[in-house]
Amino acid sequence: MNTLAMLTSTVAGTVDVPDIDDTTSYWRWDFAWEVLPEMLRSFFQVTLLVTVVGTLIAVVLGLALAILIRVLPRPLAWIITWIANFIRMTPIVVQLLVLFYGFVWMEPMTIALLVYGIHYSTYMSEVYRAGIDSVPTGQWEATTALSMPATRVWSRVIIPQALRSTVPSLGNYAISMFKDTPFLIAISVMEMVTTALEIGGFTYRYIETITIAGLIFLVASYLTAVLVNRLEKRLAYQH
């Protein structure tokens, strides 16, 4: 049984679809051109939005988690660590579904931002943790010798040094979040791949839409990788 067919038929009519009923030929450029704007629209409005906002949430929440785990008393830190492990080691898809059917009053888009942001914050907190661990003990000892208050120690000494080495890894997690956005199909948020399948649902043509979706992903992840690489090099220079 095909859940997707069920799913697409329920939300039908939300997308402008060209009227083409040729399902035999392999690839049709005219069809590809016609669906491209719709694909790009969903890419910018949903895929990119979820990635950017999700990353922002994850970057901030991840740092908070890393610091909390470090400063809280042992039992509390242990509990937080295992909650984070739990979130990190369970599927995003199921997390989306739990919130989607568990809290029906929540907007799917809100669920999306929350789940992606929180899920990836658990990855990013690990990155921050490694960054904090990489700050030499001498730095901690120096702050003790200067009797610096804890907030200053973190904000002026530890975090600035810890952050530098984390940028490439954080960037890579942002890229993986981006590539995970199609899982939003589970809660019918119209990101790019869902849109592609939706169009396919009416026209019975999948080759153009799915291929275009793949190419957009390829180009976008390539560009982001180049960007992260550049950033990494620039930060390395400043060292």
């Binding site: 199909i185 399948l197 793949g214």
Partner: peptide, 23 residues
Amino acid sequence: IEFFRGTSLLVQLMWLFYVLPLF
């Protein structure tokens, strides 16, 4: 490597499911 890392898992799944049967 870059191709399969760069395109998303769901895209690959869908491509194999919907498009591959054409060829």
